[in-house]
Write a protein that binds this DNA or RNA. Structure first.
Length: 335
DNA sequence: CTAATTTGACCTGC
DNA sequence: GCAGGTCAAATTAG
């Protein structure tokens, strides 16, 4: 997979370039009087984030000489299960009944040769922002299980496009029993489908959750997306993750020496303009190389969240709000 | 009505 | 045998 190395390098360069551009922007903002403190702060966060990402990539590249590593930031590489075939024989993944017979012939049905990695997501209690844990793909819950020794049940999700596009990606969401605000998301398999921003862009809480407004500033701190040495699609995911990355905080979860970026997800409406600006800036910057610090105000939050840069990504636009109820139930259903 | 979630049962690996 | 993972019917939500 030398392609991934090239991509990694490109990404790294892109990241550093971006950081430089952002620094220029910051410099500009510092020199103009009308620049708001928020805007400056945002830029600082973005710069830091950019460097975090670059460092993460460097670490990743350094570690991945040989076989692929999925470790990024606090994302934990779970490589106990043969990382050898990343894209090989996707058919061997778990599948529906019809392919079951074939799998029986093979002897093993699942859990083999599937890339896995873990991401930890911290959610402020009561914020109800679990919906934003969405990662650019539509997930459909297919099971929940009480795990021995774990306080909270584990939720099992698979890609909504499994039937349509045969995407075999799955994820498991496990709430930490020590810190219930932390969700450990274990991804398995890679998406072969096109990501649906729709679900990803679902504005937190807007419609599907009747949870009362919380005057605390709710926020989710997310690990930096893994920059696994994997192809373009991950880059899209990364970009998409930035789109929900509303504010970067330089607060570490518990890995002081790991460089990673954390995001703050304010859900209050007055911060949305800033959020959109961040999103569009990141995308423009990454895909077009053009950064506009100006804040844009979406006409209809949610549906037009990505108007503009959205077309770069793909055109599949389903937008079910998938994760929110599931995760809520994950957290709320006590064993 | 359609699609997503829930949940108990079943299957597989250790 | 046990625990984790998946299936699918039933239920719920939009």
């Amino acid at each position: 997979m030398e392609n991934s190395a090239d991509w990694e390098k490109m990404n790294l360069i892109n990241e550093l370039t971006q950081g430089r551009e952002l620094a220029k922007q910051l410099q500009f903002h510092l020199n103009v009087s009308y620049s708001s403190h928020e805007a400056r702060e945002l830029l600082v966060h973005k710069i830091l984030n950019s460097y975090d990402k670059a460092l993460s990539m460097l670490k990743c590249v350094g570690a991945s000489s040989g076989e692929p590593q999925l470790t990024i930031g606090t994302a934990i590489a779970v490589s106990s299960e043969s990382p050898r075939s990343f894209i090989g024989s996707p058919h061997s993944e778990d599948s529906d009944r019809d392919s079951k017979d074939q799998e029986h012939k093979d002897g093993s049905r699942k859990r083999k040769c599937v890339p896995r990695w873990t991401k930890q997501v911290q959610v402020c209690p009561g914020s109800g922002l679990e919906g934003t844990l969405d990662d650019g793909h539509s997930w459909r819950k297919y099971g929940q299980k009480d795990i021995l020794g774990a306080k909270y049940p584990r939720g099992y999700y698979r890609c909504s496009h499994r039937n349509v596009q045969g995407c075999l990606a799955t994820k498991q969401v496990q709430r930490s029993d020590e810190d219930p605000t932390i969700f450990e998301i274990n991804y398995r398999g890679r998406h072969t489908c096109t990501p649906t921003q729709g679900s990803y862009l679902t504005p937190p809480q807007s419609s599907s959750s009747p949870s009362p407004p919380d005057n605390r500033e709710p926020r989710i701190i997310v690990d930096s997306e893994q920059f696994a040495p994997l192809p373009q699609q991950n880059q899209q995911e990364i970009l998409l993750n930035f789109q929900t990355g509303l504010k970067v905080v330089t607060e570490n979860l518990n890995t002081p020496d790991q460089s990673f970026s954390s995001f703050l997800f304010p859900s209050t409406s007055n911060t949305k303009a800033e959020n959109y600006a961040f999103s569009s800036a990141m995308i423009d910057n990454s895909l077009v190389g053009n950064y506009s610090p100006s804040f844009m105000s979406p006409a209809t939050p949610g549906s037009n969240y990505f108007s503009g840069s959205q077309t770069h990504m793909n055109s599949v636009g389903r937008s079910p709000n998938l994760s929110l109820p599931s995760l809520n139930s994950l957290g709320e259903s006590q064993p």
